[in-house]
Design a binder for these strands. Structure first.
Length: 886
DNA sequence: TCGTCTTACACTTTTGAAAGGA
DNA sequence: ATCCTTTCAAAAGTGTAAGACG
């Protein structure tokens, strides 16, 4: 789900990046984020204990992301966020503005935004609430918005607010602008992916995905909930005209209309009689703001969302010094440099932009806490969860997990993590141990759907999930040796106790809508000062098809278990623990590469970076499966074993939710597709089969037929290399969305989906447990597909998501790591009928190499988003469906 | 008839070019 | 000639309302 798989195309031609074709495989099934969205169970991963955070620990270095305008999002979430989609494309509001920390300042990263369906339902706003009215429409081409600043150094990303405000949403399935195509009246979850681009070849090696549950929204062509309209008008600068005192307010409009009519009549009667003074009506009028409006405004008043913004202690991440580009990387380099320069300029310009939306600071938490709808469809569990809990969750997150996360980077751990289930959904159904609340949160526009009941607390703050890196790989990688120890980032610090405000933070590309940075404390993690460079997967990996355990990421559970939160407890800005905005999703180990590449399921998750030249890949240290042609993902993600333990130990069934971490879950096909390499599918998580040539055409991918949902793979594949992090607002509101009926549940999926709490006590165990085959058996009964809880690391109860239980059209790609199963709470696993739950779908984010570069895969150009003649980069879109976007 | 979507509209903000000055 | 600031117009982003569509 959340896990995004990136397949670095190792061999890149000399051509410019813009000329390169990238094909993104569209996940047939819901991405991991879907899981997150669906089931973001109340359970929050516990933050590593503040004490645990120590400078130089690997955990500290883990990338962390926090949603800067979390409070604004929460404001909307409490009501039920709606996003307008139009044919011409509509920006998102609130904007998705995040802050990153824990990156290696010297490394380059690419930031991507994609939006995945939370469930397979279609919604309708009835009785002042959103209700499921049917199944979702066929999945649309998955597109990814590339932040215009990409690629940029970690320093660049960390020194400013990163805004994806340029991303546009459209409901035009034939959109040629490259905008993100969404269905109206469907529920979606934005995801942010941080992909390490230490160099061209290494691109996509390390991948981190973040999800903020509070950013879920329902797409609409016209606002359904008047409360949302009010919030938008009061929060969005562009809508000032519609405010009470605006020139386009209702009174003014009515007056204009009246005048217009009158004028027309007058004209008809006597043109000369028209008096210029009539225009006075148009003049702005002081308007008394209705109490309701005031309340809204008040809510928007700057409240420190620091509590929400507090960063979670970062997990250790491998640090890599920038390495000279390898052969074939020139084009990337040039492209990157060009883009970087261009984007950088833009970002710089935007750095000083003050947040106009008042998002984070502007919004009051109070509103958020009370009514914030949970992402889950099921009403019971989420609805019951009070916001305060979320706050408590934050505290927990910050406090506990670090120790766990700090697992030493060990190759073994990698395998273990790779296999780790993306999400544990066992508790999703009624059987969940977590307490379910039948009542929906007050004010929530979305009626709770009866479902599982675990309270779902979504951490607003970001988590970093560190995936265990494959040391062996890293070490083998030529680049590895050169990688200097990770330098701490001075500006940002995060951890709970250690949280500090970074005065110097600049906003990136905020479009001026974002709130001022000053108000938002940048959290730095003192401990991040230095972390050892994670071992790189050896390019020489003897067996590309080797079981994921080797190559697999180590995705360790980015999810930190969240101890039970006290609902009443509200995170305070001062409380470091409370603010983690995002939690990492453990990368989904890709158990069955082949499944991913099947024609029917070209690329479930994301970008494919097929190695152009295997030679390069090996040289680079990214193992490519000889037969399959997939790159084995390096284990950049390696690190976070500790979290798992902490999760299991600390997480409370009720409060904590497991986050499906596995980025690229690949649907498992019983029959290997042409692309598949049987061996690869079975054995190695790390190596992915190289996709067979796809018929060239304007939309090769689109032509592909998606497998019926039923055919969906029970086993989600978890990309080894990618580290998935999802950020959930701890305070995530109860699910306002109705859950989907379980009818469609795929038994197979269900089994795979449920993930018992993982016991991370011993990394070695996990590693030993990791078995690609096992992962393939994602159908493991312990992992119900539909379970809401995120499997990951969180050991304790898995939140149940009613939504998940409902049969979602999308099959989960995620593969649970067997090793995780044991650790999971047996009660949960037993309680949840495997068959009942759909597997949590996960997308692997993959970049496909341009076919022109002699690659098998059809290449797609990476088009830059229309520049609009603006100096600032507008961002780029990847069309995962194979459609040229830019 | 209803639900949904499209389009035009008026307003606001953003953006970039041009002009002017240092 | 370069750099910086200011001004201005165009483009883009908003929600609304009316109408179209199925």
């Amino acid at each position: 789900m959340l896990g995004v798989e990136m397949y670095p195309s190792l061999a890149l031609g000399p051509q410019r990046l813009s000329d390169c074709y990238y094909r993104a495989h569209v996940p047939l099934y819901p991405t991991t984020c879907d899981m997150a969205a669906r089931g973001l169970p109340p359970r929050l991963l516990q933050p590593p204990p503040a004490s645990a955070e120590t400078p130089g620990t690997p955990q500290d270095n883990a990338p962390k992301m926090e949603l800067e305008n979390a409070s604004l999002w929460k404001q909307f979430s409490t009501v039920g966020t709606e996003m307008i989609v139009t044919k011409k494309g509509r920006r998102m509001f609130p904007q998705l503005r995040v802050k990153l920390s824990g990156l290696n300042p010297s490394l380059r990263y690419i930031l991507l935004l994609d939006i995945v369906p939370v469930d397979s339902s279609r919604y309708r706003f009835q009785d002042n609430s959103w209700q499921v009215v049917g199944g979702a429409e066929a999945r649309l081409p998955d597109r990814v918005f590339i932040h215009p600043d990409s690629p940029a150094t970690g320093e660049h990303w960390q020194n400013r607010t990163i805004s994806f405000h340029r991303a546009k949403l459209t409901n035009n399935t034939l959109d040629a602008q490259g905008y993100i195509i969404l269905h109206s009246l469907h529920r979606y979850q934005p995801r942010v992916h941080v992909i390490e681009a230490r160099d061209v070849l290494m691109w996509g090696r390390a991948q981190h995905s973040f999800i903020f549950p509070e950013t879920q929204f329902i797409t609409v062509t016209a606002y359904q909930n008047s409360k949302i309209t009010e919030l938008k008008i009061n929060s969005n600068p562009f809508a000032k005209g519609f405010r009470e005192n605006g020139m386009n307010c209702k009174k003014q409009r009515e007056a204009r209309l009246k005048r217009k009519i009158t004028s027309n009549q007058d004209e008809c009667l006597d043109i000369e009689s028209c008096d210029p003074c009539d225009s006075t009506e148009l003049l702005p009028q002081s308007v008394e703001i209705p109490s309701s409006a005031l309340s809204i405004i008040n809510t928007a008043l700057p409240i420190t969302d620091s509590g929400f913004h507090t960063e979670v202690p970062s997990l250790p991440d491998q640090t890599v010094s920038d390495q000279p580009l390898v052969l074939g990387q020139e084009f990337l380099t040039s492209e990157i440099s060009s883009m970087e320069s261009q984007q950088q300029t833009a970002s710089e310009n935007n750095v000083n932009d003050t947040l106009m939306d008042g998002s984070g600071q502007m919004m009051g938490l109070s509103g958020y806490t009370s009514t914030f709808p949970t992402p889950q469809l099921s009403s019971s569990s989420h609805a019951s969860v009070p916001l305060p809990q979320s706050s408590s969750i934050y505290s927990m997150v910050s406090s506990t997990q670090n120790s766990d996360l700090q697992l030493p980077q060990s190759s073994p751990s990698m395998s273990t993590y790779s296999s780790m289930p993306s999400s544990d959904f066992t508790g999703l159904n009624t059987a969940t141990t977590m307490p379910s609340s039948t009542t929906s949160p007050p004010g929530s526009s979305y009626p709770p759907i009866s479902h599982s009941s675990s309270p779902h607390l979504l951490p607003s703050s970001s988590y970093h999930s560190l995936l265990p890196t494959d040391q062996s790989q890293d070490n083998l990688s030529p680049h590895t040796p050169t990688n200097p120890p990770f330098q701490s980032i001075p500006t940002s610090s995060c951890q709970g106790s250690g949280l500090t405000i970074d005065p110097g933070q600049n906003q990136v590309d905020d479009g001026g809508l974002s709130s001022s940075n000053a108000t938002t404390p940048a959290v730095q993690n003192p401990s991040q000062t230095a972390f050892p460079f994670p071992p790189v997967q050896s390019s020489n990996d003897p067996d590309p098809t080797s079981p994921p355990c080797q190559s697999l990421p180590q995705s360790v559970l980015p999810f930190q278990p969240v101890p039970q939160c006290n609902p009443n407890q509200i995170p305070t800005p001062s409380d470091p623990n409370t603010t983690p905005t995002a939690f990492p999703f453990p990368p989904a180990a890709q158990s069955t590469p082949n499944t991913i590449m099947t024609p029917s399921n070209p690329n479930p998750m994301g970008f494919h970076f097929p190695p152009v030249q295997q030679n390069h890949s090996h040289n680079l240290g990214t193992p490519i499966h000889p037969t399959t042609g997939y790159f084995s993902l390096p284990s950049t993600n390696v690190i976070h074993q500790a979290p798992m333990q902490s999760v299991s130990n600390t997480m409370q069934p009720t409060t904590a939710y497991a986050v499906p971490s596995f980025p690229a879950s690949l649907p498992k096909h019983t029959t290997p597709g042409p692309f598949q390499n049987p061996a690869a599918t079975l054995t190695s998580h790390t190596s992915y089969p190289f996709p067979t040539p796809i018929p060239s055409g304007p939309h090769p991918l689109q032509s592909l037929t998606l497998p019926p949902s039923n055919s969906i793979h029970s086993v989600p594949a978890i990309p080894n290399t990618t580290q998935i992090q999802s950020t959930f607002s701890q305070s995530y509101p109860n699910p306002s969305f109705p859950h989907i009926p379980p009818q469609t549940a795929n038994p197979c999926q269900i089994t795979s989906q449920s993930f018992p709490p993982i016991q991370t006590s011993s990394t070695s165990q996990l590693l030993s447990q990791f078995n690609p085959q096992v992962t393939q058996a994602s159908t493991h009964p312990q992992f119900p597909s539909s379970s809401n809880a995120y499997p990951a690391v969180a050991p304790t109860e898995i939140g149940t998501f009613s939504q998940l239980s409902s049969a979602a059209p999308y099959l989960p790609d995620m593969v649970l790591h067997p090793s995780l199963l044991p650790s999971l709470d047996s009660s949960l696993s037993s309680s949840a009928p495997p068959s009942l739950y759909n597997p949590f779908p996960s997308y692997s984010l993959r970049l496909c190499q341009d076919p022109r570069s002699s690659l098998h895969l059809p290449l797609r150009h990476i088009y830059r988003q229309p520049q609009h003649a603006h100096a600032h980069g507008q961002g780029s879109y990847f069309d995962l469906s194979g459609r040229a976007v830019f």
